[in-house]
Write a protein that binds this DNA or RNA. Structure first.
Lengths: 325, 325
DNA sequence: CTTGTATATGAAATCGATTTCATAAAGGCG
DNA sequence: CGCCTTTATGAAATCGATTTCATATACAAG
């Protein structure tokens, strides 16, 4: 690196103290017009840019937040992250994105890293296996998204979630109204979302006086390794005519199976909507989550918390929209 | 925030100087066994974590890199970013992702921000409108990905690119071999990729003794606003039976038009492959770019440059793979 | 002409680490 | 026992900003 231009050099150039240069940037009303001009000339001339590092050091704020999710490759999270980044940029914040792959150890390490970097806050889709967030983050503000926080001090934190149960209920309900006679489900057991979506599934069956058979439900580990066999098993042994998929990754894997086995007749529903669902030969019913909105809301919640650390905890639940094709 | 635990408190706890505590972390071989033990006890007891900020300040390295792309929502870039993040994490680096939306001003602002934060380097898919990168980044290492850097000192930088021309050639060639008689193209004029892909398109036509008609080519601004009309225009006025799309976003918009106008017969090829192409009713020919690999390569290139600032510039070109459906 | 009040500026402390330089204690050797 | 080399440690400077406190000047009021 070529040597950085510091406040010292500007001070020298303008023949004033470093304090005065700093004031030109932060409290110009305390500085005389001529001095301001001299200092600004120096800044232009030497192309001065204040070191964000040094400022953070002094001010105890980094204007940086962390976003901890399972995987940016999942388009739901991608959109969410984009929502956060846009909101953050507008307010002068930078975003560090961390992929946990649903691995609690990775999550732990990333959180530590963010604490070390003194992020101003963290937006977190937690794998949910941590007993005590507070001791991990040492009073750093946390906003939980997508998944309900678990553990003893979970209720201390702001959340932005969706109504998984209702969304799933509507999707399964729509499947049945379209004539499905036996609906099976594949959901992820990770975090709280899987359970809640399964609840919606069960309630929809019950509402239509369908029996709930445990063998009609498969739990997938979200990483997509075994989805194919699970799906195939449901389809072949249960002879189901409709499948409810707990997320878009699962649906993708189900589609692979259907294609490979040339199963043309299957009603499909899935939690989370993607644009390309429009182009698939099956008329996919989907629960559209406002991922981008969740991102912006989470960021705003975080900012509010930062501005007012003692205000009461908020729990935001955003609406889903049923998409019928 | 509750007050942070600093090196000072550890020093106090262990009854040694701050220098010694620092040495326990960085050069333990200079410290006696007993002292190490005392200091480590203190660290455990007080849950000490060194401030990354203070370290960066002293060491002039932040262990942070910037990634500047047009949009994470584009799955090509998502995958690329994931490749970078995985490689970075392994080496203890954090990643700040910046979305330019192909807006040179935004790109400029983000680069400034990264310079202010003293990122150790930047991986950049540039919109290409900057004359002088060097003066912008002040000797910070830069690795260009996806797009060729433009401007006078463009040749000073490492690049990791794909062979756009060859990939496009193969795709269009395959379309024609599948029986296409009039192939049209929609590409993005942004950056160098559009031009190169168009060159491949032209060469493939020529190779098959097809005439090159300028009205068969549409330039789309990548933001997808006008793709629909452009596509419709090509299809209706030119009566083409095959379309080459310059990227996955364009293809998505073309599919929308085809669906809306119920055009069932159209051969399609696209630069960049996505998993869901398998499930679309049209047998999409695609050019599979190793996005994840580009990401890891770019990061490694950046690390190499950091380790050895004076080594000669490298230009890496990764292979694409034709996917025929 | 003295006293008091703005106005403008600088010296020095601070944020939390690392590193250089100096020094004290301990051990080796003649 | 005295001299020299290791070994272990601390004091202080440094990284690049901000902020407090003190001070110097200018000007108004008495």
């Amino acid at each position: 690196m070529s040597k950085q231009v510091t406040i010292k050099q500007i001070a020298q150039y303008a023949g004033v103290s470093e304090a005065t240069v700093s004031r030109v940037l932060n409290q110009p009303e305390l500085v005389s017009k001529q001095t301001i001009q001299k200092v600004k000339d120096g800044m232009d001339e030497l192309q001065y840019r204040p070191s964000a590092l040094a400022q953070s050091m002094r001010n105890h704020t980094t204007k940086t937040i962390g976003v901890v999710i399972s995987n940016v490759l999942n388009p739901f999270f991608t959109t969410l992250v984009r929502g956060i980044e846009d909101a953050a940029t507008k307010r002068g914040y930078s975003v560090i994105v961390c992929n946990t792959d649903e691995n609690p150890d990775k999550e732990q390490r990333y959180i530590n890293m963010l604490v070390d970097h003194q992020a101003d806050g963290i937006i977190l889709a937690s794998t949910g296996n941590h007993a005590n967030y507070h001791s991990m983050v040492n009073d750093m503000p946390l906003v939980f998204i997508d998944r309900m926080p678990q553990g003893k001090d979970a209720n201390l934190y702001d959340t932005v979630l969706v109504d998984n149960e209702k969304g799933s209920f509507n999707a399964v309900d729509a499947l049945i109204k379209q004539g499905a006679t036996r609906v099976n489900a594949i959901v992820s057991p990770v975090a709280t979302t899987g359970t809640e979506r399964l609840n919606g599934f069960r309630k929809a069956l019950t509402a239509h006086d369908f029996p709930i058979r445990e063998q009609d439900i498969a739990l997938d580990d979200y990483l997509g390794q075994h989805t194919a066999e699970l799906a195939l098993n449901l389809i072949q042994t249960n002879q189901c005519d409709a499948l409810f998929c707990g997320n878009n990754v699962i649906l993708m894997n189900v589609l692979k199976v259907l294609k490979e086995w040339q199963i043309g007749d299957m009603k499909l529903a899935v939690f989370d909507d993607q644009p390309w669902f429009d182009f698939v030969q099956y008329p996919i019913i989907s629960v559209d989550q406002p991922a981008y909105l969740i991102g912006t809301k989470a960021f705003i919640t975080l900012m509010d918390r930062l501005a007012n650390p003692d205000r009461p905890v908020t729990h935001d639940i955003v609406r889903t929209k049923l998409v019928i094709r």
